[in-house]
Amino acid sequence: MTVEDQNIEDRPAENDIVASLPIKGLIYTESAGTVTFFPSQSQYLELTNALKGASFVTCSDLCAVDYLRHLERPLPSGVSPERFEVVVQLLSLSRKQRVRIRLQIPEENPHAPSLFYIYPGAENMEREAFDLMGIVFDEHPDMTRILMPHDWEGHPLRKDYSVGRVPVQFKEAPGPR
């Protein structure tokens, strides 16, 4: 049994947030009051722009998930599961509500459009997702590593990057003085 099984009601009447958006054909679920959108790559920026217009003025979180061990996870019909997902949490202060966006990112081409020009606050979060999960955000002004050293190899939060696989990397220690 899943949380989704318990809570999702496939409502025929559209949710008021979804109804207020100008984009048609959006796939979404509603669970415990939170709407989760599953946009395609091409809908992603249009959707976030529209949500920003619909009072979701702050991007409170952005992170990436590697579903390597669950490539066949259950998703709403019409969404083809990919290895990576970028998960965005947007917050509306006036509605006191959050929405979630789950964007599918294919393994062979891990690129996503950057939210920087819509939400400048996503800058550090996208750099973190790039650093730890290897998702490249196109048009991001500073797509560099943020937590790991700049010459680090690999993306540690990927599921095929096992714990302890790489010996602890330190830069060459200075010799005795």
């Binding site: 050293p149 700049h150 200075p174 010799g175 003085r177």
Partner: peptide, 15 residues
């Protein structure tokens, strides 16, 4: 040389 090469040791490149 190694001790004085601090710039490259602490360099964070394009960060």
């Amino acid at each position: 040389y190694a001790a004085l090469d601090i710039e490259s040791e602490t360099d964070e490149g394009d960060q």
